[in-house]
Each structure stands twice: as C-alpha cells, then as structure tokens.
C-alpha cells in the first residue's frame, strides 16, 4: 500500500468517526478540508481567471481589461473601513448586470418554457390530450394555487391548494428517493475504497 492510499483512507475514516459523535479526529479532518478547499479555489481562480482572462490578455495589449481590473481592485477597499464604500461600485456592476440579465433569462426558461411544455402536452399533440399530460396540467395549476397566498385557502381555492400539496408530496418523495440513492452510491464508493484499496479485503 502506498502512502497516498494510506492518507486518503485515514482521512476517510476520520470523517466517518462522526457517525459515533463529534470528536477531535473528525474536527481535524473537517478543518483541514475547509483550509485545503479554500486554498484550491484560490489557486484555480488565480490561474483560470486572473492569469488566463485578465493579466495575460492585458500584457498582450487588450487594454479594455483595465476596467474589470479596476473594479476588481475596488473590492479590496472592503478590507479598509475608511475606504469600504468604494467596494459598492463593483458590487453595483455585478448586481445590476446580474439583475438585468436575469429578467429575460427567468422569463424564458423558468416561466414561459415550463408553461408551454405543460400546455403543449395537452393541446399541442395531434393525437389529443394524453392522461399523463392532463395530470401534469392539473398538478401544475393545483400546485401554483397552493403558493397563492393573497386569498385564504377556502372553497375551490382551498380544494385546489389541497390537491397541490399532494403533488408537492409526490415531488418531495421522489426527490428524497433520488437524494438517498445518490448519497448511498457515494458511500458505497468510499466503502469500496476502504475495503479494497486500503484494507485489501476485496479484489
């Protein structure tokens, strides 16, 4: 067994000790993960953004990049209380442009496409509406009515909202099932590593 496998195995076991309870070995591994992850993110941001997108093109004569460079440097003002209001300028660019880009982006795929796909399954097919298409349409309207809080959920709205909760429960149940499966498959991967690579019980 090489040193890499030993270290990876010991760190895996260190995290798994949390199943017993919070303990110093787990905390060591947890703090190490936090530090290493931030260090990794910094290095990747430096190489893939700062060097590839900023400094190298800037050195190559693309002087329009002085604008994002200045905005980026203004963020550092946050660390000096006297100059911290300056850091609002890059934030304003980021949030303003993000909000402006979000409006058409949300309107298209998040709202119109979802509505179009739902209605299209019922009225857009040449063969007439399918049972499943009607289920989706009813489910969508019922669930939306559950999220309508401007009126009390009574009468027809109350009934529709109640049906909406049933559809939400189906969604939560299905999402839960897939989440458990994905986590389990990751755990199986770790267990396989421990049993085969580290301990050599499986070949």
């Amino acid at each position: 067994m090489d040193i890499s496998t030993l270290i990876a195995g010991l760190l895996t076991i260190a995290i798994l000790t949390f199943l017993y309870r919070d303990n110093p070995i787990y905390k060591f591994a947890e703090y190490l993960l936090v530090g290493v992850s931030i260090g990794y993110a910094l290095v990747i941001a430096w190489t893939s953004t700062m060097m590839d997108l900023l400094f190298e093109p800037l050195a190559g004569g693309k002087f329009s990049l002085i604008v994002p460079l200045t905005l980026g440097l203004m963020i550092f003002a946050r660390m000096v209380p006297r100059f911290s209001p300056l850091s609002r300028i890059p934030l304003a660019v980021l949030i303003g442009s993000g909000a402006g880009a979000a409006i058409p982006a949300m309107l298209g795929p998040r709202i119109l496409t979802q509505m179009s796909d739902t209605v299209g399954n019922v009225v857009g097919t040449g063969a007439g509406p399918s049972f499943s298409g009607i289920v989706v349409l009813i489910g969508l309207l019922a669930t939306l009515s559950y999220f309508y809080f401007s009126r009390p959920h009574q009468g027809a709205l109350g009934l529709s909202a109640k049906i909406g909760t049933y559809f939400l429960m189906v969604f939560f149940g299905a999402t839960f099932g897939y989440t458990v499966m994905s986590r389990m498959s990751v755990f199986i991967g770790r267990a396989e590593f421990l049993l085969s690579d580290l301990l050599g019980f499986m070949k």
Binding site: M50, L54, L69, L71
Partner: peptide, 9 residues
C-alpha cells in the same frame, strides 16, 4: 470578463 474578474477578486 467583468463578472469572472470581480468574482475572483
């Protein structure tokens, strides 16, 4: 450019 650089900083 703007978003990525500001994020990195």
């Amino acid at each position: 450019e703007y978003w990525q650089v500001i994020y990195a900083f």
